[in-house]
Design a protein around this nucleic acid. Structure first.
Lengths: 328, 328
DNA sequence: CTCCCCCTTGAAATTGATTTCACTCGATTG
DNA sequence: CAATCGAGTGAAATCAATTTCAAGGGGGAG
C-alpha cells in the first residue's frame, strides 16, 4: 500500500494537520517542518490529488476542447495554453471532438464532472448555438471560433479582414477567377467566407465558394473534381491549413504548378509552409497570443465573475510567398 | 451550489446509495431507477469525479508523457493512445517534457499524485537510466524510446534495421559521402546512429555523424555550418522529422536542390512530406499501431502484474521519393 | 404454514486529504 | 503584573462519492 498522510504524520510524530500544513505552506515551526519533510522523503509519500481536490474544492485544472490536435493550429494553441497553465500551477485536460457534436457534449459533461476551474473551447457551429444559452458552473472562453453573442468571453482573429486581404492580394497579383474552399463546421469558416464574398464583390468579381468538411482528404476530392471541368480558375484560397494541404496535394497529383498554372493561398502558417513548392502564401495567426489572451480572460473572469463578456479580436498577417507570385 | 448525490436522492425519495447504484450499474428496481434518472435530469446532477476516484480507488486515467506534442510523431501517437483509452472508458493525461529531465521528474510525480492506472512514456536518455531502477506503483510502457533492459514493457520500431535501409537506399542510388544528423536526447537516435554506422561500414564508407538538439532550428544551424565548408556531402539523413525539416530549410536558404545538389532522407512520414520539393524519402513508422500496442501491453500487465517485461518491436518502412532519386 | 433465500434498499463506514476550532504557551502591551 | 495577542499544534469535522453490512420483503420449496 502506498503511504498516506497518516503514515507520514506518525513517522514524524506529528498530526496529519501538521503534515498538511507543511505541504500547503501553512504556519509550522522549522523543527517540525524538517521532521515532516524527512518523513515524506523516507516514506515516498505523494499526496492524493483526488482527496485534495475533493476537500479543498478547487481542481486547479482548466479544460481545453478542440476539434483535432492533429491540426497544427490546435497543437500550437494547446502548447500555448499549457505553458500558461504551467506558469499558474494549473493542469490542463485536453479533449478532441473530431468536429462531432456528440463527443463535444460528452466532453462538456466530463469537464463538469472534473469540476474544472475554467474552459477554453473551440466549438463547432452546432454546439456554439446551444452554448450561449448554457451555464456550466465555470467560465468559458471561446477561442478561434465563436457563436451568437452570448454570455462567454472570446478570442478570435479578424477573419473578415484577413480573408479580404487574401483576396485583395490575389487580385493585385492579377487573378480574377478566385475560388474559395471553406470548412463547414466552424463559425470561423463562415466569417472567412463573408470576407471572401465582400472582397470579391468590391472588385466586381464573381465568387465561387464551396464548403467542405475541414480536412485534407475532402479538399483533395473537391479540387480534383473542380479541376476536371472545362475551364480552370486562376486561384484557390483555403479557410484553414488542412484544406490548404488538401488543395496542394490535388494540384500535385494533377501536375499543376504554383503559381504559373494556378495560385494558391490560405490560412495558417505552418513550419513547412515555406517549403512547399515556391512557398505558400498564407495568413499567419498569432497562435500563442491567442492562447495567452484566452488564459488571461479566463483568470480575469475568475477574479470578477460579474464582468460583462469580452471579445478580443487579434489580427492575422499576410505572409506573401511564391504560390501567389505575379506571373505577368 | 451545484447538486450533489444527496440532493438527487432526496428529490427521488431514495437513499444516496441507490443513486450511486443507478450510476454504477448496481441492482436497482426499474421503478426507482426511473425516479432517480428523472431526478438527475431535473437537478442537472453531475457526479464529482474526485470524490468517486477517492472512494473507489481507481482513477480510470492513463498518463502519457512525451517530449513535445508539436512533433507530429507524438501528436499522432497521442491521438492513437487517446482513441484506445476512449474505447476503454478511460481518460488520458498528456504531458510535454520539452526533453527536460526536470520537467520529466515533475510530471512523473504528478502521475503518482493522480494515482494513474498506467503510464505510456517516451523518456529522455537520462531519465531512462533511472527508470529501470524505479517502481512507481503503476505499470509503465515505454514507447518510441527505451532504456537499459529493465522492468518495463516497451514498444519500439527496429531502428537499426530502418536506419540501415535508409543508408542502403542512398548507396544504391549512387551516394557515397553520406552525413547523418542525430538527436542527442533519445535512445532512438542512438540506435539509428548505430544502424547508420553499421551500414556505412558494410559498404566501406566513412561515417560522418553529428548529434544535435532534436529540433528544426538546431539542425538548420548545423547544416548551414557544414555546407559552408569546402566540399559538400552527397546526402544527408536525419534521425527524426524535426531535424529533417531543419535540414530542408537550410538547403532552401542555400539554394541547393534535392536530389541534384544533394540527397536528403530521414525518419517520419508527415502529411506534407510528399509535397516538399520532389517529395522526401522517409522511413514511415506505424504510429497508430505503436499506440495501440502500448495500450494493449498496458492492459495485459494490469491483468497480470507478474508477467515478465515484454518488448515489442515493430518495423518502419521505406517510402522512396524524389529527394533521393538517382541522378545518374 | 413455515423456513429460507435472494433481491432491493438504506444507514453508516470509508476514502485521504484540508479546514475549522479550540487550546497551549510564550511574548508584548497597557 | 495582569491581560491580550498571536503563533503553533492537534482533534475532529468535512468534502461527495462508493461500498459494506444489515435488514425488509416477496416468492418458492419443503
Amino acid at each position: 500500500m502506498v503511504a498516506g498522510i497518516k503514515d507520514v504524520a506518525q513517522k514524524a510524530g506529528v498530526s496529519a494537520a501538521t503534515v498538511s500544513r507543511v505541504l500547503g505552506k501553512g504556519p509550522v515551526s522549522q523543527e517540525l517542518r524538517d521532521r515532516v519533510e524527512a518523513a515524506i522523503r523516507a516514506t515516498g509519500y505523494r499526496p492524493n490529488l483526488s482527496a485534495r481536490r475533493l476537500r479543498s474544492q478547487h481542481s486547479q485544472t482548466i479544460g481545453l476542447i478542440v476539434s483535432d490536435i492533429r491540426n497544427p493550429f490546435f497543437t500550437a494553441l494547446s502548447r500555448s495554453v499549457e505553458d500558461e497553465a504551467y506558469r499558474a500551477e494549473m493542469r490542463v485536460i485536453l479533449c478532441n471532438t473530431d468536429e462531432n457534436p456528440e463527443r463535444e457534449a460528452m466532453y462538456l459533461r466530463l469537464m463538469q464532472e472534473e469540476r474544472i476551474t475554467g474552459l477554453i473551447y473551440a466549438p463547432t457551429r452546432v454546439a456554439a448555438e446551444r452554448l450561449s444559452r448554457t451555464d456550466f458552473g465555470f467560465p468559458v472562453v471561446l477561442v478561434d471560433r465563436t457563436g451568437p453573442v452570448g454570455r462567454h468571453d472570446s478570442v478570435v482573429i479578424d477573419n473578415l479582414q484577413a480573408s479580404m486581404s487574401l483576396v485583395e492580394h490575389l487580385v493585385a497579383t492579377g487573378r480574377r477567377r478566385i475560388v474559395g474552399l471553406f470548412g463547414n463546421t466552424s463559425s470561423t469558416a463562415i466569417e472567412r467566407h463573408a470576407g471572401y464574398l465582400a472582397a470579391m464583390s468590391q472588385n466586381g468579381l464573381t465568387p465561387e465558394a464551396v464548403f467542405v468538411s475541414p480536412n485534407a482528404e475532402a479538399a483533395t476530392v473537391e479540387i480534383t473534381r473542380m479541376l476536371g471541368e472545362a475551364s480552370r480558375p486562376d486561384a484557390i484560397i483555403a479557410s484553414n491549413g488542412l484544406i490548404l494541404l488538401g488543395i496542394v496535394k490535388a494540384l500535385k497529383a494533377l501536375h499543376l504548378e504554383m503559381p504559373d498554372d494556378i495560385a494558391v493561398a490560405g490560412f495558417d502558417n505552418e513550419s513547412w509552409s515555406e517549403l512547399i513548392g515556391p512557398g505558400l502564401t498564407v495568413i499567419e495567426q498569432p497562435i500563442s497570443e491567442i492562447g495567452r489572451t484566452a488564459m488571461s480572460l479566463l483568470f480575469d473572469r475568475l477574479k470578477a465573475p460579474g464582468l460583462a463578456p469580452r471579445k478580443v479580436m487579434l489580427s492575422g498577417s499576410l505572409v506573401e510567398r511564391g504560390s501567389t507570385a505575379s506571373t505577368a
